[in-house]
Design a protein around this nucleic acid. Structure first.
Length: 235
DNA sequence: GCGACAG
DNA sequence: ATCTTGTCGC
C-alpha cells in the first residue's frame, strides 16, 4: 500500500499534481466478487483543537449488523481546501484502517468519489491507496450538474460533469435534501447506488457512514475534546 | 471578473 | 467539520 505519511509536506499545487497522477489508475467497473461485509468511515474534530479522530465501522451485508470497529487518533497535518479533502483526512483514516483486524469487502466514505473536478474525491483516493472497492456518499455537492430529484424516497437524478456521468443525486428520504452518490474505485455507478439504497434505514444518511459518524464523535467526547479549551476567552 | 466551493 | 434549543412543517 502506498505511503501516505508525506501528505503533510505537500503544497496545494503538489497535491493537485498527485491527484492528476493517481487518477490514471481509477477503475470504474462492476464489482464481481460477492459483498458480504461493508464498512463506513468518518472523522471528527473540534475546531479549537488540532486532533483528528478517525473511525471505521464494519457491518455484515445486507443485514447491516455491526461486526467490528477500529479507531485512530492523530493530528491535523493539512488544511481543509475544497477539492483536496483527501490530503487532510486520509492519513488518519489509514491509521484506523491499519487497526482493523478484518478488512471489509467494500467501504463507504463521507464525501465524493469521482464526482470531483479531477475525479479524485476522498472515496476514490482511499480506494486507490488501499485497493479496497469504495463508494462516496456526500451530504452536499462538489462537482456535477443535475436536475432536482422528485420529492419521494429513492427518487434519483444523474449528475454530469464535463460531459460524463459522475454520480447520482439520491433522495434517500422524502422531504430531505438528496445525498450525492458516486463510485470511488473498483465499482460501477449503478452498483454504488444500489448498495447505498440497501443501506438506508430511515435516515437521510446511509447506515455505514451514519454509524461511523456517531462513533468518532463519541470517542472525541470521551477523549475530553468536546469544547473549547478556554470558553469565550477570545470571543 | 464573478460565483462556487466535499468535510 | 463543530457550536446548540427550540421550533416550523409534514
Amino acid at each position: 500500500m502506498e505511503d501516505v505519511s508525506g501528505y503533510q509536506n505537500l503544497t496545494p499545487a503538489q497535491a493537485i499534481d498527485h491527484q492528476q497522477e493517481l487518477r490514471k489508475q481509477i477503475s470504474i467497473k462492476e464489482l464481481n466478487t460477492p459483498i458480504r461485509t461493508i464498512a463506513g468511515a468518518d472523522i471528527s474534530f473540534n475546531k479549537y483543537s488540532d486532533i483528528l479522530y478517525a473511525g471505521i465501522v464494519v457491518f455484515s451485508y445486507p443485514e447491516l449488523k455491526i461486526i467490528g470497529t477500529a479507531t485512530a487518533i492523530s493530528h491535523i497535518t493539512f488544511p481543509y481546501i475544497s477539492g483536496l479533502l483527501a490530503f487532510r483526512e486520509i492519513p488518519a483514516l489509514i491509521d484506523a484502517w491499519n487497526n482493523l483486524i478484518t478488512k471489509p469487502d467494500l467501504m463507504v466514505l463521507d464525501g465524493q468519489g469521482i464526482a470531483h473536478e479531477r475525479r479524485m474525491g476522498i472515496a476514490t483516493h482511499f480506494g486507490l491507496v488501499t485497493g479496497v472497492p469504495t463508494i462516496g456518499s456526500a451530504k452536499s455537492r462538489l462537482a456535477g450538474r443535475f436536475d432536482e430529484p422528485a420529492d419521494r424516497s429513492f427518487a434519483e437524478s444523474p449528475m454530469y460533469d464535463k460531459g460524463e456521468q459522475v454520480g447520482v443525486a439520491l433522495r434517500s428520504k422524502a422531504r430531505c435534501n438528496p445525498i450525492y452518490i458516486s463510485p470511488g474505485h473498483n465499482i460501477s455507478i449503478q452498483q454504488s447506488v444500489d448498495v447505498i439504497k440497501n443501506c438506508i434505514r430511515g435516515y437521510r444518511i446511509p447506515e455505514p457512514t451514519r454509524q461511523a459518524h456517531l462513533l468518532v464523535n463519541k470517542i472525541r467526547i470521551e477523549h475530553g475534546d468536546g469544547k473549547p479549551a478556554q470558553p469565550g476567552l477570545f470571543d
